[in-house]
Design a protein around this nucleic acid. Structure first.
Length: 268
DNA sequence: GGCCAGGGCATCT
DNA sequence: AGATGCCATGGC
């Protein structure tokens, strides 16, 4: 719904200074480590390209040299993933709130159902813009979600808890009690503790938000079912890895456990 | 039909 | 502190 793949482009509607922009990302072939081909369009003519550049840099780790991760001592399996997906860059959410909303939505339900919940939320808020006759939906912002009522979310088949967690979070952020976007500037441990103090956010969600939304490089959502599936497959386990094994491997991936996790997910 | 899903809380021993 | 039940719903 919000994220879209078309004609080998990844299309992503975002806001720059409250103006809608459609980001278009493709691969630039021919480079040893593939580079990204970045393009954008907007119905508005006056987009602050410096701010757009800042956003793109954050969303695609453009200020990070992947070779630092590639040459980092790690295990054979991770080296294999790096060979399989040379140049693969994570795609972060344009802001921290979206990753937090998605963490709450994705808790404990299968991904297909989670996508449906997200889609209903996006369509309910229905903030759109047009380019070339195509309609693009923006992911709801903090204020828009804060104004939804509990019953509305319930009618979208959010569980009572999911509805509470999402609304409380949005309202805390909207009210200024919680600076979600500022988490990117804090060190990992401090940011983690801030998130864990919020009802509805446990270790998985907090680490997910830090890696996917805030751009921390060494977050590690232990217990994640995607990690478990990937580990099971890649390491030839007969059941999901135990926490000890996971943390042990995680130690080898430091300080790039976020990258390692993105590569594990990519393998699925 | 039972188990698991990109968990976390509340409530026990 | 560590274990257990519960939440709500869909996929397989």
């Amino acid at each position: 719904m919000v994220d879209r793949f078309a004609d080998r482009y990844f299309l992503r509607p975002v806001l720059i200074d409250n103006n809608p922009v459609l980001i278009k990302i493709g691969n630039k072939p021919g480079a040893l480590v593939e580079a990204l081909k970045v393009d954008w369009e907007s119905p508005k003519s006056s987009i602050d390209t410096a701010n757009l550049r800042r956003l793109l840099t954050r969303m695609f780790y453009l200020d990070f040299d992947l070779n630092k991760f590639y040459h980092h001592p790690a295990d054979k399996i991770m080296k294999g993933l790096i060979r399989r997906f040379p140049g693969f860059r994570p795609i972060l959410t344009p802001n921290v709130f979206e990753s937090a909303a998605w963490a709450i939505i994705g808790q404990q339900v299968n991904l297909q159902f989670a996508y449906r919940l997200k889609s209903r939320l996006v369509e309910y808020v229905n903030r759109t813009f047009q380019i070339d006759g195509q309609t693009y939906h923006l992911f709801p912002g903090v204020d828009e979600v804060a104004n939804i009522d509990h019953e509305t979310l319930r009618s979208m088949q959010f569980s009572g808890r999911k509805a509470e967690y999402l609304l409380d979070l949005a309202r805390m952020a909207a009210g200024g009690e919680l600076d979600l976007e500022g988490l990117a500037e804090l060190d990992y441990e401090t940011a983690l503790q801030k998130l864990l103090a919020i009802r509805g956010l446990g270790p998985w969600s907090a680490n997910y938000i830090l890696m996917r939304g805030a751009g921390h490089h060494d977050a590690f959502p232990v217990g994640d079912s995607g990690i478990n599936q990937a580990m099971k497959r890649l390491y030839g386990l007969d059941k999901k890895p135990d926490i000890g094994r996971l943390l042990e491997l995680g130690e080898r991936w430091r300080p790039y456990r976020s990258l390692a996790t993105f590569y594990l997910w990519k393998s699925l």
